[in-house]
Structure formats: C-alpha cells, structure tokens
C-alpha cells in the first residue's frame, strides 16, 4: 500500500490526538511516520488518486489544522511514497535540513495576496494616459466599431497597455505589505492578476499585516480588487534538500 504525504512537523505528543482525515473517497485517517524528531503526516494513498476538488480540499485542510499549532513544511499536492519506510528514510536522510527549516518557519504563516484591476477603471486609465489610444478609440467609435481587423488591432494595443499598467501598479500593493513581512515570494501567473505574491509573516504581526491589507483594499477600491488569503501553511517558503 503506498503512502500519501501531506507534510512534515516537529514530532510532539499532541499529534496523535488531532484526528485528521485525508484524501480519498473514504477519507482515511491521517497518521504520523516518525524519524529523527520529525513526523510526517501521511495516510494510505487511495487508488487512482487525481486532483479533485474534494482531495485538494482534504490536503489543504490537514495542513491548515497542523499549522494552527505547529510549524509545518507543506508538500505540494499529490506526493505519494512507495511505503512508510521510504518516508522514514527520507526524514532520516535530510533530518538536518527539515529540522532547520521547521525552526525557521516556526510561528510564521503565509499570506497570499492576489490583486487585479477592475477592468473598466483600468481601461479608463490607459485611454486617459494615451492620446493615441484615445483617438483611435474615438475614430473606431465614429466608424461604428470599424472593421474586425481594425477592432482587433486596437484591442491588442489596449491589451498591451493593460499589461504595462499591471506591472506598474503591482508595486503599489506589494511594497507596503512587504514592510510587515519577513519574506516575499512571487506566485505563479494566474487569473490575469497584476500581483500574485505570498508573504511570510510572523504570527505576532499577522494582525498588523491584515490591517495594512485592509487599508490598501480601501485605498484602491473601485480601481483594483485586492484579495488576501491566510493565514496559510507556508507553501511558498519551503525548499527541498540539496
């Protein structure tokens, strides 16, 4: 039976009382494989596991609950080990690395911030700033929209201007928040976001961080949408050994 791996924590007495349930249709119990003072949260891997909403949620929930009271090194979704012994061997082989990383992330949480423009406001801005775009827009409007080719060429220029605006505005969100964080990490490009950035924040400063996020949210209201998710396990701040 192969073993699904959620993440690593420092081994302590409270882990077995948590009663977590894992990925798979029958939500198997989460147990712990221990070696060298580190515990890996694992469960029996279901047959034919795929990235379904239910299982993604279970993975996240296990890590979220662990992170409440422990420093945790979250695995990327979908890690399956041949068996428990292989997990224990991995913990043994890189015990120093994992232990150091756990110490470093102790009492830290991740906040992920995604910001995107409100489309109409962003369009107004790029048209307002670019005389050329504005007059082409006016010309097309007078021509009843213009030919499909003209519309497309114009739309492409607008898309380009919106891209530039995104890059310009991302600092306005990221920089003030970084003041309240220990580290930042770029997230993947998704959702047409102008910023997708994660922040590593000490628990003691979480409230302060959220306060700043709320201030930005108000400041940019109607111009951009700022979405904050967290506190999360530090997905973006873990590094593999080697």
């Amino acid at each position: 039976m192969s073993t699904y791996v959620y993440g690593f924590v420092h081994d302590d007495g409270s882990l077995d009382e948590m009663e977590l349930s894992g990925v798979g249709e029958d939500a198997p119990p989460v147990r712990f494989v221990r070696a060298h003072g580190i515990a890996a949260a694992v469960s029996d891997a279901p047959q034919g596991l795929r990235a379904k909403r239910r299982d993604l949620a279970a993975h996240q929930e296990v890590l979220q609950r662990l992170a409440r009271n422990h420093g945790v090194l979250p695995m990327r979704f979908g890690a399956v080990s041949e068996d428990d012994d292989t997990v224990a061997a991995e913990l043994g082989r890189f015990a120093d690395h994992y232990s150091t990383l756990l110490d470093r992330l102790e009492d830290r949480v991740e906040f992920n911030v995604k910001a995107s423009h409100v489309e109409e406001a962003a369009l107004r801005t790029v048209l307002g700033e670019d005389e050329g775009l504005r007059s082409r827009n006016e010309a097309l409007r007078k021509a009843g929209g213009g030919t499909p080719a003209e519309r497309m060429a114009f739309g492409e220029q607008v898309a380009q201007a919106l891209e530039e605006l995104k890059q310009r505005d991302s600092g306005a969100v990221v920089e003030p928040l970084a003041e309240h964080a220990e580290r930042t990490a770029q997230g993947p490009l998704v959702d047409g976001c102008l910023a997708n950035v994660s922040f590593l924040v000490h628990r003691d400063r979480a409230e302060e961080f959220l306060g700043e996020a709320e201030r930005l949210r108000r400041e940019f209201d109607a111009y951009m949408e700022v979405r904050v998710n967290g506190p999360l396990p530090p997905y973006s701040f873990v590094t593999s050994p080697q």
Binding site: S2, V5, G7, F8, L49, R50, A51, L56, H59, Q60, L73, P74, M75, R76, F77, G78, A79, V80, S81, E82, T86, A89, E90, E110, N112, A185, G187, P188, V190, N196, S198, L232, Y235, S236, V238, T239, S240
Partner: peptide
C-alpha cells in the same frame, strides 16, 4: 489552488499524482 499545486515541497523519491 496555485499554491497547493505549484508551491510546497517536492521530494524526488516520492511520485507525484
């Protein structure tokens, strides 16, 4: 989703779904 699927530890002795 992007964090759960694109971030987090990857360990080469484990297979990935």
């Amino acid at each position: 989703l992007d964090l759960i699927l694109d971030k987090g530890l990857v360990i080469d002795v484990f297979a990935r779904v």
